[in-house]
Design a protein around this nucleic acid. Structure first.
Lengths: 218, 218
DNA sequence: CTTACATCGACCATCCTGGTCTAATTTTAG
DNA sequence: CTAAAATTAGACCAGGATGGTCGATGTAAG
């Protein structure tokens, strides 16, 4: 914090959102270097001068977006992960669901962050770097802290580590295909329901194939 | 064809390659619009004028690269796919291996084509469009013509279509991780061997889990 | 009225772009 | 040998986009 100016925060939230959304979209589509402040103000419907009145430079605007995105990820993705689920498959599936939910609620932030992580175009101030580091560590712990997953359910003739990896690829693959399909057009609710059902069926197959016979699920 | 000029083809192949590689790299990294002819000539170590002497414009240079890349894909990827393999898993694994081989032999072309398919920045002349279409059709047939795969090996309590899909995601996931890991530094031969062995072990697990007990492989 | 803040968009210096052109050099031909 | 033809390099160009500035104007408060 410290980069966002008071003047911006005093704006009515409608205008704030318009600006933030426009900026997220532009940076998310083009990356830092290619992003154009001209296009941002045009999309946001404000005068050029205002952008540099609220934020002092392109860089500070970008920093504000990073900060805001990290907050959102922490609040609406990481904090929502239930780490009491002990079944590996259910756990991975749960994470995938929460992630997908974040993706549908905040598509702009998602796109912005993907670009951010892929291309790391702009430097960050130390405070932000630390925050990023903190969130990454926390998230990594939440998502990949699988060391203590219950291996006893796996059938004995496969290495549980590898089986775990296989399951992860599968779920990632499904999620990836899903996101791919809905990059442009938003999914209809019923279509979405159908897809979740399908997802469950895939999970069922995974359990059938990787777990011992006669587990406790119906 | 028809866009590449004779003057360029008369060059000694060293110089040709330098130019082609530089151009593939630039377009592959930046995409059509962002790619800079200045950087290309600099990287290739030739004068600015020459690029427009060999090819007449940025666009024709690009077309030449597309053409050349399609030829390579046809010759060194698609034509090398052995479609006599009837075991689903072995077949998918085989394709993955051939693809990976192409990727390691022609990293520039691979990157160029990914960017090409993702962003389709520049228009193509009709002849090239047709060629692209032809290669795509042929490739799609080779890679996804799975309608007649042998379902009898799958265990009876899972839907073979879904099982097939699961296997595909798995293999894609492994290949994806592999490529990710070697984006910058090239793999050592022994490291590569280790990874192929690991790949085979994953395949074995897949067979163990998705096929009926007591298949014919050792 | 004055003062302070808010808003706009014309404007600016700068940079980079694809492409051209001249002038020099090398190669080929006669 | 000369002369014509092919090849090379890079200074140069007009055009367009960039991040950022600034004076003009509006608005609200005291």
């Amino acid at each position: 914090m410290g980069y966002a100016l008071k003047s911006f925060e005093k704006l009515d939230s409608d205008k704030q959102n318009r600006i933030i959304r426009a900026a997220l979209r532009e940076f998310g589509k083009q990356g830092y270097d290619r992003a154009s402040t001209n296009r941002i103000v045009q999309e946001a419907g404000i005068g050029k001068g205002m952008l540099f009145y609220y934020f002092n430079s392109k860089k500070e605007l970008y920093w504000h977006l990073v900060d805001l995105s990290l907050e959102a990820v922490q609040r609406e993705f990481l904090d929502k992960i239930d780490d009491s689920i002990d079944d590996v498959i259910d756990r991975l599936a749960h994470i995938s669901r929460v992630k997908w939910q974040f993706f549908t609620v905040h598509p702009e932030i998602s796109r912005f962050l993907t670009h951010f992580f892929l291309t790391d175009g702009a430097e960050l101030p130390d405070a932000l770097k630390e925050k990023l580091d903190r969130v990454m560590r926390y998230g990594f712990g939440k998502v990949y802290e699988n060391k203590r997953f219950d291996r006893s359910r796996f059938r004995e003739d496969v290495d549980p580590e590898r089986a775990h990896q296989l399951i992860e690829w599968t779920i990632k693959g499904y999620a990836g295909d899903m996101m791919e399909r809905f990059k442009e057009k938003k999914p209809e609710p019923e279509e979405l329901q159908r897809l979740w059902d399908e997802f469950d069926q895939y999970l069922h197959i995974l359990k059938t194939c990787f777990y011992k016979r006669g587990g406790e699920e119906g």
